[in-house]
Simulated assay, not measured.
Amino acid sequence: MISQGDHLRLVEQERLRLERKKRTQEEMLKDFVMILENMMKPRQALTAMMCALAGIVSIAVGSFYLVQNPENAQKANELAAILIAHGLAQILLTTTYFVTCVQTSIAVTRGVEGAFQIVVGVIIAGVYVLLAAISLIIGFYGFYKAIALCSNVDYFNTESPTYVPQPEFCAALTVFVFHIITILVKCCCWK
């Protein structure tokens, strides 16, 4: 049989263990919140909105020219498809960013009881990083394709496989240069 003193000592040890576990969880949650709050700067939100706007323009330009370009204009259709993919990636990236911000705000309000919100926020932040990598790849690929066309683009002969309407080419180049500038701004300037 366990004596009354042993029982009280075991209860006290269990209480201390649970208290340490709770403090560890609180510290871990504070670390997660700090990481997620670093994503929620007003300048980052402004950049995200600018990227979403560029994504909408990219989708509109790509869709318009994908329908308008002749079928044999391979380079123009490829550039239009890259513009659409880039625009979709930018809109998904911005949406994920704002969902992460909302999740983090809810979690901060709830505190330790909102641990589920913080875990979901961290998962969504992971999705954000994945989408950022995909967007980065598409943007650099589109920039590479646009620059590669500079030397042999044909603005006038619609029968040429390198035919690209000049407004489409200029819009694509502008979108992809803007993409590179926003990457630099996000990484270097607005920490």
Rank of each mutant, 00 (worst) to 15 (best):
residue 125 A to E: 08
residue 107 A to H: 03
residue 20 R to G: 05
residue 160 S to V: 06
residue 3 S to I: 03
residue 24 T to R: 11
residue 171 A to N: 10
residue 106 I to H: 03
residue 43 R to F: 09
residue 8 L to R: 05
residue 127 V to E: 03
residue 97 Y to W: 08
residue 28 M to R: 15
residue 184 L to T: 03
residue 136 L to S: 01
residue 64 F to R: 13
residue 156 F to L: 12
residue 87 G to K: 01
residue 18 L to R: 10
residue 89 A to W: 01
residue 19 E to I: 01
residue 86 H to R: 04
residue 9 R to P: 01
residue 79 L to S: 04
residue 29 L to A: 09
residue 100 T to C: 13
residue 87 G to I: 03
residue 70 P to H: 12
residue 138 I to N: 04
residue 98 F to Q: 00
residue 158 T to H: 08
residue 101 C to V: 12
residue 150 C to L: 15
residue 38 N to C: 12
residue 103 Q to D: 14
residue 129 V to C: 08
residue 145 K to F: 03
residue 91 I to Q: 04
residue 24 T to G: 00
residue 89 A to Q: 00
residue 54 A to M: 12
residue 28 M to H: 15
residue 90 Q to V: 02
residue 48 A to N: 02
residue 115 A to W: 07
residue 149 L to M: 08
residue 94 T to Q: 08
residue 66 L to R: 10
residue 67 V to N: 12
residue 138 I to S: 00
residue 136 L to D: 00
residue 102 V to H: 13
residue 176 F to H: 06
residue 140 F to S: 06
residue 3 S to H: 07
residue 97 Y to M: 11
residue 141 Y to W: 11
residue 155 Y to S: 08
residue 54 A to E: 14
residue 37 E to N: 12
residue 111 G to H: 06
residue 7 H to A: 13
residue 150 C to I: 13
residue 11 V to C: 01
residue 79 L to A: 03
residue 72 N to T: 13
residue 81 A to C: 03
residue 138 I to H: 01
residue 24 T to C: 05
residue 110 R to Y: 07
residue 112 V to W: 02
residue 64 F to T: 09
residue 153 V to S: 12
residue 5 G to K: 13
residue 63 S to M: 04
residue 152 N to S: 13
residue 56 I to H: 07
residue 70 P to G: 14
residue 96 T to I: 08
residue 23 R to H: 08
residue 10 L to M: 15
residue 73 A to G: 08
residue 25 Q to L: 15
residue 86 H to Q: 07
residue 45 A to N: 10
residue 128 Y to P: 00
residue 153 V to D: 04
residue 24 T to I: 13
residue 21 K to A: 15
residue 98 F to Y: 05
residue 92 L to P: 02
residue 126 G to E: 01
residue 137 I to N: 06
residue 78 E to W: 11
residue 63 S to W: 02
residue 132 A to C: 05
residue 32 F to E: 08
residue 149 L to V: 04
residue 95 T to V: 15
residue 88 L to H: 09
residue 7 H to M: 13
residue 137 I to V: 14
residue 49 M to T: 10
residue 188 C to H: 10
residue 39 M to R: 14
residue 109 T to A: 15
residue 65 Y to V: 04
residue 162 T to Y: 12
residue 65 Y to G: 03
residue 115 A to V: 03
